[in-house]
């Protein structure tokens, strides 16, 4: 489904991704863990063309996309929904309009279908009554869930989550994590979750990757990770125990 082949991404003199090779089969929930600034978000943004790799190839559904133009990427972005680290809601639009925004742009759907999809997406993130509110009128956690609803409304084949629980309280974090699992299983989507949250990764991931300084230092199932002797993985696991 998704394949990175020796992908290199540089920002000026700094190399963020160092010949990264990764394969994500369809339907998998993959967690990418690592310390801050190690290239996790860059990896996601490179996949959907928000950033372009300097070297290497990226394959999605049998297509090599790294040299795609902005117009060609539109098709890829229809398949891949991304929930950003920030809620990234449009301040001047209501919650309803935010969720309907991509639907109106990507698909020529009748208005009744748009309304129905928006309401079902908001219900899926447990916000059925927020549709007429402005982003500024709801809490940060609710904004993140609206952001998730906006992505879900497009019914993407691939869900990309960039630190979906950062800045949330433990209860909202747990509910968002549960939501990620439910939605991924319910719609059989391929999900890539960038996170610091080892607890969540161990409970819902099919596979976990540990990224350090632009390279994969460990990968495997949650059980494999629990037994890993890689120091960085052990540090993350220590956090879970404590």
């Amino acid at each position: 489904m998704i394949q990175f082949e020796k992908v290199v991404k540089r920002f000026g003199p700094r190399t963020i991704l160092k010949e990264l090779t990764l394969h994500v089969p369809a339907g998998e929930i993959l967690f990418i863990l690592g310390t801050s600034g190690t290239g996790k978000s860059v990896l996601l943004k490179t996949l959907v063309g928000l950033l372009r790799p300097d070297e290497g190839e990226i394959w999605i559904d049998g297509q090599e996309v790294s040299k795609f133009s902005e117009i060609e990427y539109l098709g890829i972005r229809k398949k891949c929904g991304m929930v950003f680290q920030q809620p990234a809601l449009f301040d001047s639009l209501t919650v309803f309009e935010n969720v309907a925004f991509g639907l109106r742009r990507h698909y020529r759907l009748p208005e009744a279908e748009i309304v129905s999809r928006v309401h079902s997406s908001l219900a899926a993130v447990h916000l059925p009554d927020a549709s007429e509110k402005m982003p500024g009128e709801i809490s940060y956690g609710m904004q993140k869930r609206v952001s998730l609803a906006r992505t879900l409304a497009l019914r993407p084949q691939v869900l990309l989550f960039d630190e979906p629980t950062t800045g949330l309280d433990p209860i909202t974090t747990a509910s968002v994590n549960l939501l990620i699992e439910e939605l991924s299983r319910q719609f059989s989507t391929t999900s890539i979750v960038v996170s610091h949250d080892m607890t969540c990764a161990l409970s819902i991931a099919d596979r976990i990757i540990m990224l350090d300084q632009g390279r994969i230092v460990e990968e495997g199932s949650p059980d494999h990770m629990k037994r890993s002797q890689v120091p960085l993985v052990k540090e993350f696991l220590a956090e879970v125990v404590t």
Partner: peptide, 10 residues
């Protein structure tokens, strides 16, 4: 990241 969100939404 609203600009990135715009690009993701086509």
């Amino acid at each position: 990241e609203q600009i990135d969100a715009l690009r993701m939404l086509g």
